[in-house]
Nucleic acid binder design. Sequence first.
DNA 1: AACAAGACCTGCATGC
DNA 2: TGCATGCAGGTCTTGT
Length: 279
Amino acid sequence: MPELPEVETIRRALEARITGRRIASVDPRRSALRVAMPPDLAARVLGRRISGVSRRAKYLLIGLEDDDLLIAHLGMSGRILLHRRPPAPGPHDHLILGLDDGQTLYFNDARRFGLVTVATAAQAARLPMLEGLGPEPLAPDFDAARLGRALAGRRTSIKAALLDQTVLAGLGNIYACESLFRARISPRRRAGALGPARLARLVPAIKDVLAEAIAAGGSTLRDHRQPTGALGYFQHRFAVYGREGAACAACDCDLSTTGGVRRIVQGGRSTFYCARRQR
DNA sequence: AACAAGACCTGCATGC
DNA sequence: TGCATGCAGGTCTTGT
């Protein structure tokens, strides 16, 4: 679920609301996530002050004083919610942090594909999950030349390549589809064979779709919530994702002849695209 | 080395 | 109503 825009939305809300707070209580309720929560996590974070909240790819990095990081990934179904009046914990509330201003932070993840761990900043830089990540797509130095180098020699489809977090970090299935639509590139095109014109369209398409999705609070298909509980609403602006059979948002396809947005399966994931507009 | 497929886990929509 | 099936925003491992 959460791709870069959803995680960034959550990051911004957390940064505004929990920076400077001290962790007053820790309740690890279920450690069996995709990566097990370390047994000493509670002892390592209890009493620490939160210095800030950053993001790398789809990982949230909650900075603690003295240079430790509380690292969280939301998998497909994870949420982080802040409560003033905390509800009774449910079966999917895996970690609960009480803060010194009365807020309570819940890490909730029904499918348990997410993770929560803690590391020093130096250790984190060497974690395999973070070390191999490609460039941040919203960074100013992420440009067509850089993407071209990352794709060089790749024989897989451009759609599959955009999901490879070592190529660029943070796109998932929704925004890979939407970016290719905006760039008018067929998702089936070989990644390593994109020419300069297509690369030059793809990079701004990625940046724009991500920026617009962040501004909209991300996309709520089912699970995504902002920490306040608010929904994202970028799902209302999808041009192709989840719209199989519908008219594509940009060309005046005659549905009776084109069939509208198509769904194919690439690398085991659904891809949605307009075969008329994307070449 | 790169790639596709399978695995992980739960919930929901659909169809019989 | 109950049950089986398929699908879902991600990533890691396995085998080719």
